[in-house]
């Protein structure tokens, strides 16, 4: 029996979809069987980041409305044998065409076949959020080191804490730019975690390659030499129960990533 994890944020554009794709890929690289569900109905793009766009035939709504079987709608990522699958969102439907009960039932049924089901949540706290959270066992909240993103993360954590079936949410701080933190121009990791009083699952540096690799349909995590990839790989290992030390950002020095890389890749 696998577990279902929802990736949420409150604020849009902070990296939910990027994190879903990269964590899913990292877990598949570790040999886990993973299914990614895109619940951002009407604004799907998980398929693009994974490079699976033109292989979509059916979508989430088709499954929920009985127009096809789940296995017909799932898109297999051929790079990972039988490890990584995507259940795409509908592009032409509306988020109100889905209800939380349906999502719960669907995910419950899928947990038998997968080690991890990762649900990409749309921004906001309305219907789309409720649908995405309904079937999850735990939640990961994504924020960036900006006040507005942290405020929205706080709001979302408050809502997640009200969900009885969810474990305490964990945090990922994405798009960290060490020089800004050092200069005091961005909130630092400690400040954010203390403010939100949740466990930190990991941090991901800001890196141009995240964008270029998304455009190529090849999640950055596949390049082991990339710092953002390392961040996602560490998070995946923590999800699997390993205790991996956090990249310390307290006193960033030039070439810090190089040093960290040598620490982590020595394992």
């Amino acid at each position: 029996m696998g577990e279902a994890i929802v990736i949420t944020s409150g604020k849009g554009g902070v990296g939910k979809t990027t994190s879903t794709a990269n964590l899913g890929t990292a877990l598949a690289l570790q040999g886990k069987k993973v299914c990614l569900i895109d619940t951002d109905i009407g604004l799907r793009n998980l398929d693009v980041i994974l490079g699976l766009e033109n292989r979509i035939i059916y979508d989430l709504i088709d499954v929920l409305e009985g127009r096809c079987k789940i296995h017909q709608a799932l898109v297999k990522d051929k790079r990972f044998e039988d490890k990584l699958f995507l259940l795409p969102a509908a592009q032409t439907a509306d988020k109100n065409d889905v209800n939380p009960e349906q999502m719960k039932e669907l995910i419950e049924g899928m947990k038998v076949d997968y080690d991890f089901i990762i649900i990409d949540c749309p921004a906001g706290i309305e219907q789309g959020y409720k649908n995405a959270v309904a079937g999850a066992d735990r939640a990961i909240v994504i924020t960036t080191p900006e006040i507005s993103a942290v405020r929205d993360a706080d709001r979302i954590i408050g809502l997640l804490e009200l969900e009885e079936n969810l474990e305490a949410p964990k945090l990922i701080i994405n798009r960290i730019r060490p020089h800004l933190m050092e200069a005091g121009d961005a909130l630092d990791v400690n400040e954010i975690t203390t403010h939100l009083s949740v466990d930190l699952l990991g941090i991901v540096p800001d890196d141009e390659r995240v964008i270029s690799s998304s455009n190529k349909g090849e999640p950055v995590v596949m390049d082991p030499s990339n710092p953002a990839a390392l961040g996602y790989r560490n998070i995946a290992r923590r999800l699997l129960g390993e205790s991996v030390p956090l990249m310390t950002m307290d006193k960033p020095k030039p070439g810090m990533f190089g040093k960290l890389k040598s620490i982590f890749s020595s394992k």
Binding site: R151, D152, D154, R155, I157, G158, L159, E161, H195, S197
Partner: peptide, 23 residues
């Protein structure tokens, strides 16, 4: 923690053990 968007009310005195975040 009293988080953004949450409201905690008491008729008498109120003791909060934890932070009250913005909003």
């Amino acid at each position: 923690i009293v988080r953004s968007g949450q409201v905690v009310k008491a008729k008498g005195d109120l003791v909060v053990i934890g932070d009250v975040n913005q909003n």
